[in-house]
Amino acid sequence: MNKLMLATALGLALTMAAGCAQKSVVRYGDATAVETTDISFGSTDLQKVAGEMTDSLVLSPVVGTLTQNKRPVMFVERIKNKTSEHIDTESITDSVSTKLLRSGKFRFVDMSRVEAAREQMKFQQEGGMVDSTKAVQFGKQIGAEYMLYGNLSSIVKSNKDKSDVYYKFTLRLMDLESGLVEWADETEIRKTKAKESVGW
């Protein structure tokens, strides 16, 4: 009887253990949730830097003056990745420019699609398929008045128990005609990873 009980207990335990080990669940998560999977640059950091920079820019007194009666035209030069990891900085620029555009304060020209636009216009002008009176004309685009550019840098330190990463994101707005930097701001992120004892 005793042996039977022991066998049952063992069997149950093994089944439970196996059940735990092989669990794999797929579920949808919140894209805006705080993500702390590891210490490298993540979605929360991207949302934080893009959000803070946009807020700072649209609230600045200089931008208040610039956008008083018009919506200035901007273009985003790339954000240089000076960190030690691979980060898609175009994604940061996309977020910043989308937020600024949706704020209704600025308009943008997209330098990354100049070739595609040129090709389409060439087709309309020279392809012979588009009514020439309705074809889009060359030389009528509006040039950017301001350039947005920046840097993302990091300092990484670690010892055997702890790692620490510090990100600094700098963004600047330059008046293309005068060459003056009209606005600049930086935002910082500190992330640490330490071993934590697992408690019950």
């Binding site: 009980m5 335990a13 439970m16 735990c20």
Partner: peptide, 21 residues
């Protein structure tokens, strides 16, 4: 008595695993 101990062991073990999961 032994039976009771056996049942208790089974119950304890399984509850432990359930909480773990």
């Amino acid at each position: 008595m032994k039976e009771i101990i056996g049942i208790a062991t089974v119950a304890l073990l399984s509850s432990l695993f359930v909480t773990g999961c």
